[in-house]
């Protein structure tokens, strides 16, 4: 990782080092055009589709009637799935933080020469397909699996069932399984930005904290945590946003009571209800944008980009 920091005294590669002129625009144009055509224009198309008259169909064509009622319909009909998506995504993000912080901290400060190898290990599980890994969780959490057997022997399944997290005597096809899968699938998106922030912290700051009679906990709270904040904010966003829109975990590890909003959108499109599906997509996007803006403002790190 030695190439990252320019050597001390190097001229700042700020605006002064940048070339002016037409070439910049020419280099930017192809990708900019592609993103505009296939990211921005589709968003506009999505919004206009969400205002079509829902009585149309693909075969007969849709009428653009400014049918704002689509939004009222989907909000009324799918409010529980929306709420559940954000609840599960929030829980998964919280658990990713809980699991990801010690791992990122251990790699940054305790791994020594094994640092790079451990970083490879963090992303290695992701070399194989998302779906295949999620299907593996079906097997791990199945009723015959050793995890369920062990939990059963410890009466933990009874506890989970009493809390309404699972069905009696099993783990799979439950809210618990869905959140476990979401946490698992998005954990590296938490660990990597956290590691990037933690790695920049000079370990001598910890010693300085100890020298000034701060307990390890106080040093952590007053020194490590504030310096790790940019990574934590980036990590929570990279975990929360995809988790809120995901439906693979809810479909493969959950039951009919754990349906998330992604499934609903997917099914509405499959069933040909394009206006409602589009309206629901817009709602999801708007809620996420509002939450993210609010969160970034609260966290006080507007210079993420």
């Amino acid at each position: 990782m030695a190439h990252v920091a320019p050597p001390a005294g190097a001229p700042a590669s700020g605006d002064a080092a940048r070339k002016r002129g037409l070439v910049g625009y020419l280099l930017l144009a192809p990708a900019g055009l592609w993103l505009s055509l296939f990211f921005i224009v589709p968003m506009i198309s999505l919004i206009s589709t969400s205002l079509y008259d829902p009585s149309g169909s693909l075969e007969t064509g849709y009428q653009m009637t400014g049918h704002v009622q689509n939004y009222a319909t989907v909000l009324q009909e799918y409010d529980s799935q929306l709420l559940r998506s954000f609840l599960y995504a929030g829980l998964a993000t919280f658990f990713c933080m809980l699991l990801g912080f010690p791992l990122a901290y251990a790699i940054a400060f305790k791994a020594g020469k094994w640092k790079n190898l451990l970083l490879v290990a963090v992303i290695a599980p992701f070399f194989t397909s998302f779906l295949i890994r999620t299907l593996a969780w079906q097997l791990i959490l199945s009723d015959q699996g050793w995890v369920t057997q062990t939990f059963n022997a410890l009466y933990l399944t009874d506890l989970f069932a009493a809390l309404g997290l699972t069905e009696q005597g099993s783990l799979l096809y439950s809210p618990l399984a869905v959140v476990t899968g979401l946490t698992y699938n998005f954990l590296p998106f938490m660990v990597l930005p956290l590691y990037a922030s933690l790695e920049k912290i000079d370990p001598r700051l910890h010693e300085a904290g100890a020298d000034l009679y701060a307990s390890p906990f106080t040093t952590f709270r007053k020194v490590t945590l504030p310096l790790a904040l940019p990574g934590l904010v980036a990590g929570t966003l990279l975990t929360f946003i995809p988790a809120a829109g995901d439906f693979i975990n809810a479909q493969l590890l959950g039951n009919t009571q754990t349906t998330m909003i992604g499934t609903v959108i997917q099914k509405l499109f499959d069933g040909g209800s394009y206006p409602e599906a589009s309206a629901l997509s817009v709602v999801l996007m708007v809620i996420i944008v509002v939450l993210v803006l609010f969160y970034i403002r609260r966290a006080g790190t507007e210079d993420l980009v």
Partner: peptide
């Protein structure tokens, strides 16, 4: 952006 939103748009 969530994938489902990009896909549906």
């Amino acid at each position: 952006s969530p994938e489902i939103v990009m896909g549906s748009s």
